[in-house]
Design a binder for these strands. Sequence first.
DNA 1: CGCTGAGTTCAGCGAGCGATGAATTACGTC
DNA 2: GACGTAATTCATCGCTCGCTGAACTCAGCG
Lengths: 211, 211
Amino acid sequence: MARTGRRPARPADEEASASPDTRSSILAAARAGFALSGYDGASTRAIAAAAGVDAALIHHYFGSKQRLFVAAMEIPFDPDAVRREVVGGPRDTVGERIVRFFLDLWEEPVRRQILLGMVRSAMTDPEAAAMVRRLVIEGTVLPLVAETGVTQSAMRATLVGSQLMGLALIRYVLCVEPLAGTPVETVVAAVGPTIQRYVTAPIEGLPPGAD
Amino acid sequence: MARTGRRPARPADEEASASPDTRSSILAAARAGFALSGYDGASTRAIAAAAGVDAALIHHYFGSKQRLFVAAMEIPFDPDAVRREVVGGPRDTVGERIVRFFLDLWEEPVRRQILLGMVRSAMTDPEAAAMVRRLVIEGTVLPLVAETGVTQSAMRATLVGSQLMGLALIRYVLCVEPLAGTPVETVVAAVGPTIQRYVTAPIEGLPPGAD
DNA sequence: CGCTGAGTTCAGCGAGCGATGAATTACGTC
DNA sequence: GACGTAATTCATCGCTCGCTGAACTCAGCG
Protein backbone atom coordinates (compact mmCIF):
# COMPACT_ATOMS: atom_id res chain seq x y z
CA MET A 1 0.00 0.00 0.00
CA ALA A 2 2.62 2.50 1.08
CA ARG A 3 0.26 5.20 2.29
CA THR A 4 3.13 7.01 3.88
CA GLY A 5 6.67 7.87 2.86
CA ARG A 6 8.23 9.06 -0.35
CA ARG A 7 6.28 8.48 -3.53
CA PRO A 8 7.93 6.42 -6.29
CA ALA A 9 9.33 8.42 -9.17
CA ARG A 10 7.86 8.29 -12.65
CA PRO A 11 9.07 5.29 -14.69
CA ALA A 12 11.96 7.46 -15.82
CA ASP A 13 11.64 6.37 -19.44
CA GLU A 14 11.36 10.04 -20.44
CA GLU A 15 12.91 13.28 -19.36
CA ALA A 16 11.36 15.31 -16.58
CA SER A 17 8.30 16.51 -18.40
CA ALA A 18 4.57 16.05 -18.08
CA SER A 19 3.81 15.36 -14.43
CA PRO A 20 4.46 18.47 -12.36
CA ASP A 21 6.51 18.13 -9.23
CA THR A 22 4.89 18.56 -5.84
CA ARG A 23 6.32 21.97 -5.15
CA SER A 24 4.89 23.60 -8.26
CA SER A 25 1.50 21.96 -7.90
CA ILE A 26 1.34 23.45 -4.41
CA LEU A 27 2.23 26.83 -5.92
CA ALA A 28 -0.50 26.50 -8.56
CA ALA A 29 -3.10 25.54 -5.97
CA ALA A 30 -1.97 28.41 -3.77
CA ARG A 31 -2.37 30.91 -6.59
CA ALA A 32 -5.89 29.63 -7.26
CA GLY A 33 -6.79 29.68 -3.58
CA PHE A 34 -5.43 33.14 -2.85
CA ALA A 35 -7.05 34.47 -6.02
CA LEU A 36 -10.43 33.17 -4.96
CA SER A 37 -10.44 33.90 -1.23
CA GLY A 38 -7.55 36.22 -0.44
CA TYR A 39 -4.79 35.54 2.06
CA ASP A 40 -6.93 35.04 5.15
CA GLY A 41 -9.71 33.19 3.40
CA ALA A 42 -7.49 30.58 1.79
CA SER A 43 -6.40 27.90 4.26
CA THR A 44 -3.22 25.90 3.89
CA ARG A 45 -5.29 22.75 4.35
CA ALA A 46 -7.58 23.65 1.46
CA ILE A 47 -4.63 24.54 -0.75
CA ALA A 48 -2.92 21.25 0.06
CA ALA A 49 -6.11 19.33 -0.66
CA ALA A 50 -6.49 21.09 -4.01
CA ALA A 51 -2.91 20.15 -4.82
CA GLY A 52 -3.61 16.54 -3.82
CA VAL A 53 -0.99 16.65 -1.11
CA ASP A 54 -0.65 16.55 2.66
CA ALA A 55 -0.90 19.91 4.42
CA ALA A 56 2.41 19.45 6.17
CA LEU A 57 4.21 19.54 2.83
CA ILE A 58 3.44 23.23 2.55
CA HIS A 59 5.51 23.89 5.62
CA HIS A 60 8.16 21.49 4.45
CA TYR A 61 8.64 23.40 1.21
CA PHE A 62 7.82 26.96 2.18
CA GLY A 63 8.17 27.17 5.95
CA SER A 64 5.02 29.20 6.59
CA LYS A 65 1.82 30.41 4.98
CA GLN A 66 3.38 33.89 4.70
CA ARG A 67 6.30 32.60 2.67
CA LEU A 68 4.00 30.46 0.52
CA PHE A 69 2.08 33.64 -0.26
CA VAL A 70 5.09 35.64 -1.37
CA ALA A 71 6.31 32.67 -3.41
CA ALA A 72 2.93 32.34 -5.13
CA MET A 73 2.74 36.10 -5.76
CA GLU A 74 6.18 36.25 -7.40
CA ILE A 75 6.38 39.56 -9.22
CA PRO A 76 4.00 39.15 -12.13
CA PHE A 77 5.62 41.59 -14.56
CA ASP A 78 8.70 43.71 -15.07
CA PRO A 79 8.01 47.41 -14.42
CA ASP A 80 10.93 48.39 -16.64
CA ALA A 81 9.45 46.45 -19.56
CA VAL A 82 6.23 48.37 -19.05
CA ARG A 83 8.03 51.65 -19.37
CA ARG A 84 9.87 50.55 -22.48
CA GLU A 85 6.67 49.40 -24.15
CA VAL A 86 4.44 52.26 -23.11
CA VAL A 87 6.73 55.28 -23.32
CA GLY A 88 7.72 54.58 -26.90
CA GLY A 89 5.12 55.78 -29.40
CA PRO A 90 3.21 58.99 -29.94
CA ARG A 91 2.63 61.01 -26.81
CA ASP A 92 -1.01 61.75 -27.57
CA THR A 93 -2.00 58.07 -27.42
CA VAL A 94 -0.03 57.13 -24.30
CA GLY A 95 -3.36 56.76 -22.46
CA GLU A 96 -4.55 54.02 -24.76
CA ARG A 97 -1.24 52.18 -24.52
CA ILE A 98 -1.39 52.24 -20.72
CA VAL A 99 -4.91 50.82 -20.62
CA ARG A 100 -4.06 48.19 -23.21
CA PHE A 101 -0.97 47.08 -21.34
CA PHE A 102 -2.86 46.96 -18.06
CA LEU A 103 -5.70 44.89 -19.47
CA ASP A 104 -3.37 42.50 -21.32
CA LEU A 105 -1.71 41.88 -17.98
CA TRP A 106 -5.02 40.80 -16.48
CA GLU A 107 -6.11 38.75 -19.47
CA GLU A 108 -3.33 36.22 -19.05
CA PRO A 109 -4.82 33.52 -16.78
CA VAL A 110 -1.93 32.81 -14.38
CA ARG A 111 -1.14 36.48 -13.98
CA ARG A 112 -4.79 37.22 -13.38
CA GLN A 113 -4.75 34.77 -10.48
CA ILE A 114 -1.70 36.46 -9.02
CA LEU A 115 -3.18 39.93 -9.34
CA LEU A 116 -6.52 38.78 -7.95
CA GLY A 117 -4.70 37.28 -4.98
CA MET A 118 -2.88 40.53 -4.35
CA VAL A 119 -5.95 42.72 -4.68
CA ARG A 120 -8.22 40.49 -2.61
CA SER A 121 -5.64 40.30 0.15
CA ALA A 122 -4.82 44.01 0.02
CA MET A 123 -8.33 44.87 1.17
CA THR A 124 -7.75 43.57 4.68
CA ASP A 125 -4.02 42.92 5.06
CA PRO A 126 -1.92 46.11 5.35
CA GLU A 127 1.17 44.24 4.23
CA ALA A 128 -0.49 43.12 1.00
CA ALA A 129 -1.85 46.64 0.58
CA ALA A 130 1.69 48.02 0.72
CA MET A 131 2.69 45.36 -1.82
CA VAL A 132 0.06 46.56 -4.29
CA ARG A 133 0.81 50.22 -3.67
CA ARG A 134 4.51 49.79 -4.23
CA LEU A 135 4.19 47.55 -7.27
CA VAL A 136 1.39 49.36 -9.10
CA ILE A 137 1.54 53.00 -8.10
CA GLU A 138 5.07 53.78 -7.01
CA GLY A 139 6.80 51.10 -9.08
CA THR A 140 4.98 51.44 -12.36
CA VAL A 141 2.48 54.25 -12.87
CA LEU A 142 4.42 56.98 -11.09
CA PRO A 143 7.71 56.52 -12.98
CA LEU A 144 5.71 56.25 -16.17
CA VAL A 145 3.94 59.54 -15.57
CA ALA A 146 7.13 61.19 -14.38
CA GLU A 147 8.89 60.10 -17.55
CA THR A 148 6.48 62.09 -19.68
CA GLY A 149 7.82 65.18 -18.01
CA VAL A 150 4.61 66.81 -16.82
CA THR A 151 4.18 68.59 -13.51
CA GLN A 152 2.16 67.22 -10.56
CA SER A 153 3.22 63.72 -11.47
CA ALA A 154 2.32 62.25 -8.06
CA MET A 155 -1.24 63.50 -8.26
CA ARG A 156 -1.56 62.36 -11.87
CA ALA A 157 -0.21 58.93 -10.98
CA THR A 158 -2.81 58.37 -8.25
CA LEU A 159 -5.59 59.52 -10.56
CA VAL A 160 -4.40 57.07 -13.22
CA GLY A 161 -4.14 54.40 -10.55
CA SER A 162 -7.68 55.05 -9.39
CA GLN A 163 -9.15 54.49 -12.86
CA LEU A 164 -7.04 51.41 -13.53
CA MET A 165 -7.73 49.80 -10.16
CA GLY A 166 -11.42 50.58 -10.52
CA LEU A 167 -11.41 48.94 -13.93
CA ALA A 168 -9.80 45.81 -12.51
CA LEU A 169 -12.27 45.81 -9.64
CA ILE A 170 -15.38 45.99 -11.80
CA ARG A 171 -14.12 43.79 -14.61
CA TYR A 172 -12.15 41.07 -12.83
CA VAL A 173 -13.08 41.08 -9.13
CA LEU A 174 -16.78 41.91 -9.09
CA CYS A 175 -17.30 40.85 -12.73
CA VAL A 176 -20.02 43.40 -13.45
CA GLU A 177 -21.54 43.21 -16.90
CA PRO A 178 -21.33 44.54 -19.52
CA LEU A 179 -17.83 45.81 -18.73
CA ALA A 180 -16.62 42.36 -17.68
CA GLY A 181 -17.49 40.84 -21.05
CA THR A 182 -16.39 43.67 -23.32
CA PRO A 183 -13.39 43.08 -25.65
CA VAL A 184 -10.13 44.68 -24.58
CA GLU A 185 -9.93 47.06 -27.53
CA THR A 186 -13.39 48.45 -26.82
CA VAL A 187 -12.44 49.20 -23.24
CA VAL A 188 -9.19 50.72 -24.44
CA ALA A 189 -11.11 53.07 -26.71
CA ALA A 190 -13.50 54.02 -23.90
CA VAL A 191 -11.01 54.46 -21.03
CA GLY A 192 -7.89 55.49 -22.93
CA PRO A 193 -8.90 59.17 -23.21
CA THR A 194 -9.46 59.30 -19.43
CA ILE A 195 -5.92 58.16 -18.75
CA GLN A 196 -4.62 60.43 -21.49
CA ARG A 197 -6.26 63.37 -19.76
CA TYR A 198 -4.89 62.44 -16.33
CA VAL A 199 -1.37 62.15 -17.74
CA THR A 200 -1.06 65.10 -20.10
CA ALA A 201 -3.89 67.60 -19.63
CA PRO A 202 -3.69 70.47 -17.14
CA ILE A 203 -5.42 69.62 -13.86
CA GLU A 204 -7.91 72.26 -12.74
CA GLY A 205 -8.05 73.33 -9.13
CA LEU A 206 -4.39 72.78 -8.40
CA PRO A 207 -1.65 75.40 -8.54
CA PRO A 208 -0.16 74.47 -11.93
CA GLY A 209 3.40 74.66 -10.69
CA ALA A 210 3.06 72.32 -7.73
CA ASP A 211 4.57 68.86 -7.75
CA MET B 1 -20.01 42.28 43.22
CA ALA B 2 -22.70 41.26 40.79
CA ARG B 3 -20.41 40.15 37.98
CA THR B 4 -23.31 38.47 36.27
CA GLY B 5 -26.92 39.33 35.52
CA ARG B 6 -28.62 42.44 34.33
CA ARG B 7 -26.80 45.74 34.85
CA PRO B 8 -28.45 48.44 36.98
CA ALA B 9 -29.88 51.33 35.02
CA ARG B 10 -28.49 54.83 35.25
CA PRO B 11 -29.64 56.77 38.34
CA ALA B 12 -32.55 57.97 36.22
CA ASP B 13 -32.23 61.53 37.42
CA GLU B 14 -32.07 62.65 33.82
CA GLU B 15 -33.69 61.64 30.56
CA ALA B 16 -32.19 58.88 28.46
CA SER B 17 -29.21 60.74 27.10
CA ALA B 18 -25.47 60.35 27.30
CA SER B 19 -24.71 56.68 27.91
CA PRO B 20 -25.60 54.61 24.86
CA ASP B 21 -27.52 51.40 25.33
CA THR B 22 -25.86 48.06 24.81
CA ARG B 23 -27.44 47.30 21.48
CA SER B 24 -26.19 50.43 19.78
CA SER B 25 -22.72 50.20 21.24
CA ILE B 26 -22.50 46.71 19.76
CA LEU B 27 -23.61 48.16 16.44
CA ALA B 28 -20.98 50.89 16.61
CA ALA B 29 -18.24 48.42 17.47
CA ALA B 30 -19.42 46.16 14.67
CA ARG B 31 -19.24 48.97 12.13
CA ALA B 32 -15.71 49.78 13.23
CA GLY B 33 -14.66 46.14 13.16
CA PHE B 34 -16.15 45.34 9.77
CA ALA B 35 -14.73 48.57 8.35
CA LEU B 36 -11.24 47.66 9.50
CA SER B 37 -11.12 43.93 8.78
CA GLY B 38 -14.08 42.99 6.61
CA TYR B 39 -16.70 40.39 7.43
CA ASP B 40 -14.42 37.39 7.86
CA GLY B 41 -11.63 39.26 9.56
CA ALA B 42 -13.78 40.81 12.27
CA SER B 43 -14.65 38.30 14.99
CA THR B 44 -17.75 38.57 17.12
CA ARG B 45 -15.53 38.20 20.18
CA ALA B 46 -13.38 41.17 19.18
CA ILE B 47 -16.45 43.26 18.41
CA ALA B 48 -17.98 42.40 21.77
CA ALA B 49 -14.73 43.24 23.54
CA ALA B 50 -14.56 46.61 21.77
CA ALA B 51 -18.12 47.28 22.87
CA GLY B 52 -17.23 46.34 26.44
CA VAL B 53 -19.74 43.54 26.46
CA ASP B 54 -19.94 39.76 26.62
CA ALA B 55 -19.77 37.98 23.25
CA ALA B 56 -23.01 36.11 23.87
CA LEU B 57 -24.92 39.39 23.83
CA ILE B 58 -24.34 39.65 20.10
CA HIS B 59 -26.33 36.51 19.56
CA HIS B 60 -28.90 37.62 22.07
CA TYR B 61 -29.59 40.84 20.17
CA PHE B 62 -28.89 39.85 16.59
CA GLY B 63 -29.09 36.07 16.43
CA SER B 64 -26.02 35.54 14.27
CA LYS B 65 -22.93 37.24 12.88
CA GLN B 66 -24.66 37.43 9.50
CA ARG B 67 -27.59 39.35 10.89
CA LEU B 68 -25.31 41.61 12.91
CA PHE B 69 -23.56 42.45 9.65
CA VAL B 70 -26.71 43.42 7.79
CA ALA B 71 -27.87 45.43 10.80
CA ALA B 72 -24.55 47.29 10.96
CA MET B 73 -24.57 47.90 7.20
CA GLU B 74 -28.08 49.38 7.21
CA ILE B 75 -28.55 51.16 3.89
CA PRO B 76 -26.24 54.17 4.14
CA PHE B 77 -28.10 56.49 1.77
CA ASP B 78 -31.29 56.85 -0.20
CA PRO B 79 -30.75 56.19 -3.92
CA ASP B 80 -33.81 58.27 -4.78
CA ALA B 81 -32.38 61.27 -2.94
CA VAL B 82 -29.24 60.88 -5.02
CA ARG B 83 -31.20 61.09 -8.21
CA ARG B 84 -33.12 64.11 -7.05
CA GLU B 85 -29.96 65.95 -6.06
CA VAL B 86 -27.81 64.97 -9.02
CA VAL B 87 -30.24 65.05 -11.93
CA GLY B 88 -31.35 68.60 -11.22
CA GLY B 89 -28.91 71.17 -12.57
CA PRO B 90 -27.20 71.78 -15.87
CA ARG B 91 -26.58 68.67 -17.90
CA ASP B 92 -23.00 69.57 -18.81
CA THR B 93 -21.84 69.49 -15.18
CA VAL B 94 -23.61 66.31 -14.11
CA GLY B 95 -20.21 64.62 -13.89
CA GLU B 96 -19.01 67.00 -11.23
CA ARG B 97 -22.20 66.62 -9.24
CA ILE B 98 -21.90 62.84 -9.27
CA VAL B 99 -18.32 62.90 -8.02
CA ARG B 100 -19.15 65.47 -5.37
CA PHE B 101 -22.09 63.48 -4.09
CA PHE B 102 -20.07 60.28 -4.04
CA LEU B 103 -17.19 61.84 -2.12
CA ASP B 104 -19.48 63.60 0.35
CA LEU B 105 -20.95 60.20 1.10
CA TRP B 106 -17.55 58.87 2.02
CA GLU B 107 -16.48 61.92 3.99
CA GLU B 108 -19.12 61.41 6.68
CA PRO B 109 -17.38 59.23 9.32
CA VAL B 110 -20.12 56.72 10.18
CA ARG B 111 -21.08 56.23 6.57
CA ARG B 112 -17.46 55.81 5.65
CA GLN B 113 -17.22 52.92 8.11
CA ILE B 114 -20.29 51.30 6.60
CA LEU B 115 -19.00 51.67 3.04
CA LEU B 116 -15.55 50.43 4.05
CA GLY B 117 -17.15 47.40 5.66
CA MET B 118 -19.10 46.65 2.51
CA VAL B 119 -16.16 47.11 0.16
CA ARG B 120 -13.70 45.16 2.30
CA SER B 121 -16.15 42.29 2.62
CA ALA B 122 -17.15 42.36 -1.03
CA MET B 123 -13.64 41.37 -2.07
CA THR B 124 -13.98 37.84 -0.72
CA ASP B 125 -17.65 37.31 0.10
CA PRO B 126 -19.89 36.89 -2.98
CA GLU B 127 -22.94 37.90 -0.98
CA ALA B 128 -21.39 41.20 0.05
CA ALA B 129 -20.21 41.65 -3.53
CA ALA B 130 -23.79 41.34 -4.74
CA MET B 131 -24.79 43.85 -2.05
CA VAL B 132 -22.33 46.43 -3.39
CA ARG B 133 -23.20 45.74 -7.00
CA ARG B 134 -26.92 46.14 -6.40
CA LEU B 135 -26.61 49.22 -4.22
CA VAL B 136 -23.99 51.15 -6.16
CA ILE B 137 -24.26 50.11 -9.79
CA GLU B 138 -27.78 48.86 -10.40
CA GLY B 139 -29.46 50.87 -7.64
CA THR B 140 -27.82 54.24 -8.10
CA VAL B 141 -25.49 54.81 -11.03
CA LEU B 142 -27.46 52.93 -13.65
CA PRO B 143 -30.82 54.67 -13.04
CA LEU B 144 -28.95 57.95 -12.90
CA VAL B 145 -27.30 57.41 -16.25
CA ALA B 146 -30.52 56.06 -17.75
CA GLU B 147 -32.36 59.17 -16.59
CA THR B 148 -30.15 61.40 -18.71
CA GLY B 149 -31.55 59.60 -21.75
CA VAL B 150 -28.37 58.56 -23.51
CA THR B 151 -27.88 55.24 -25.29
CA GLN B 152 -25.67 52.39 -24.01
CA SER B 153 -26.59 53.28 -20.45
CA ALA B 154 -25.48 49.92 -19.00
CA MET B 155 -21.99 50.26 -20.43
CA ARG B 156 -21.79 53.89 -19.33
CA ALA B 157 -22.93 52.97 -15.83
CA THR B 158 -20.18 50.38 -15.38
CA LEU B 159 -17.58 52.82 -16.68
CA VAL B 160 -18.76 55.43 -14.20
CA GLY B 161 -18.79 52.77 -11.49
CA SER B 162 -15.23 51.77 -12.29
CA GLN B 163 -13.92 55.30 -11.84
CA LEU B 164 -15.89 55.91 -8.64
CA MET B 165 -14.97 52.58 -7.05
CA GLY B 166 -11.33 53.11 -8.01
CA LEU B 167 -11.45 56.53 -6.41
CA ALA B 168 -12.83 55.06 -3.18
CA LEU B 169 -10.23 52.31 -3.28
CA ILE B 170 -7.24 54.61 -3.63
CA ARG B 171 -8.54 57.37 -1.38
CA TYR B 172 -10.28 55.52 1.44
CA VAL B 173 -9.18 51.88 1.42
CA LEU B 174 -5.52 52.00 0.42
CA CYS B 175 -5.13 55.68 1.41
CA VAL B 176 -2.55 56.50 -1.26
CA GLU B 177 -1.21 60.04 -1.16
CA PRO B 178 -1.60 62.61 -2.49
CA LEU B 179 -5.12 61.64 -3.59
CA ALA B 180 -6.12 60.58 -0.09
CA GLY B 181 -5.31 63.99 1.37
CA THR B 182 -6.66 66.20 -1.42
CA PRO B 183 -9.72 68.38 -0.71
CA VAL B 184 -13.00 67.15 -2.16
CA GLU B 185 -13.44 70.07 -4.55
CA THR B 186 -10.03 69.51 -6.09
CA VAL B 187 -10.84 65.88 -6.76
CA VAL B 188 -14.22 66.91 -8.14
CA ALA B 189 -12.51 69.23 -10.60
CA ALA B 190 -10.04 66.53 -11.64
CA VAL B 191 -12.39 63.56 -11.94
CA GLY B 192 -15.66 65.31 -12.84
CA PRO B 193 -14.82 65.59 -16.56
CA THR B 194 -14.10 61.85 -16.69
CA ILE B 195 -17.56 61.00 -15.38
CA GLN B 196 -19.07 63.66 -17.63
CA ARG B 197 -17.50 61.98 -20.63
CA TYR B 198 -18.67 58.50 -19.62
CA VAL B 199 -22.22 59.76 -19.14
CA THR B 200 -22.77 62.07 -22.09
CA ALA B 201 -20.06 61.72 -24.73
CA PRO B 202 -20.25 59.19 -27.57
CA ILE B 203 -18.34 56.01 -26.77
CA GLU B 204 -15.92 54.97 -29.49
CA GLY B 205 -15.65 51.38 -30.60
CA LEU B 206 -19.24 50.50 -29.87
CA PRO B 207 -22.10 50.53 -32.36
CA PRO B 208 -23.71 53.85 -31.33
CA GLY B 209 -27.22 52.44 -31.31
CA ALA B 210 -26.64 49.47 -29.02
CA ASP B 211 -27.97 49.36 -25.49
C1' DC C 1 24.20 -4.16 0.22
C1' DG C 2 23.89 -0.30 3.57
C1' DC C 3 23.85 4.35 4.55
C1' DT C 4 22.11 9.04 4.17
C1' DG C 5 19.05 12.54 2.99
C1' DA C 6 15.01 14.15 0.81
C1' DG C 7 10.03 13.45 0.15
C1' DT C 8 5.72 12.25 2.33
C1' DT C 9 2.12 11.10 5.70
C1' DC C 10 -0.05 11.09 10.22
C1' DA C 11 -1.42 12.41 14.69
C1' DG C 12 -1.86 16.08 17.51
C1' DC C 13 -1.12 20.77 19.97
C1' DG C 14 -2.78 25.26 21.16
C1' DA C 15 -5.47 28.88 19.77
C1' DG C 16 -9.39 31.10 17.91
C1' DC C 17 -13.81 30.83 15.77
C1' DG C 18 -19.38 31.11 15.90
C1' DA C 19 -22.83 29.46 18.54
C1' DT C 20 -25.63 27.48 22.60
C1' DG C 21 -27.81 26.86 27.17
C1' DA C 22 -28.06 27.48 31.83
C1' DA C 23 -27.55 30.55 35.61
C1' DT C 24 -27.87 35.13 37.56
C1' DT C 25 -29.57 39.80 38.13
C1' DA C 26 -32.51 43.78 37.51
C1' DC C 27 -36.64 46.09 35.62
C1' DG C 28 -41.76 46.76 35.00
C1' DT C 29 -46.24 45.66 36.44
C1' DC C 30 -49.89 44.34 39.11
C1' DG D 1 -43.85 42.30 47.43
C1' DA D 2 -44.24 38.62 44.06
C1' DC D 3 -43.86 37.46 39.25
C1' DG D 4 -42.67 37.28 34.50
C1' DT D 5 -39.49 38.97 31.32
C1' DA D 6 -35.49 41.12 29.53
C1' DA D 7 -30.52 41.78 30.04
C1' DT D 8 -26.14 39.91 31.11
C1' DT D 9 -22.39 36.57 32.14
C1' DC D 10 -20.13 32.07 32.17
C1' DA D 11 -18.84 27.68 30.74
C1' DT D 12 -18.53 25.02 27.06
C1' DC D 13 -19.28 22.52 22.45
C1' DG D 14 -17.70 21.38 17.90
C1' DC D 15 -14.96 23.00 14.40
C1' DT D 16 -11.05 24.97 11.75
C1' DC D 17 -6.86 27.15 11.74
C1' DG D 18 -1.37 27.30 11.24
C1' DC D 19 2.08 24.64 12.63
C1' DT D 20 5.18 20.76 14.65
C1' DG D 21 7.55 16.35 15.38
C1' DA D 22 7.89 11.74 14.73
C1' DA D 23 7.60 7.97 11.64
C1' DC D 24 7.91 5.99 7.25
C1' DT D 25 9.49 5.28 2.31
C1' DC D 26 12.02 5.93 -1.55
C1' DA D 27 16.28 7.68 -4.47
C1' DG D 28 21.13 8.10 -4.95
C1' DC D 29 25.73 6.89 -3.77
C1' DG D 30 29.51 4.07 -2.27
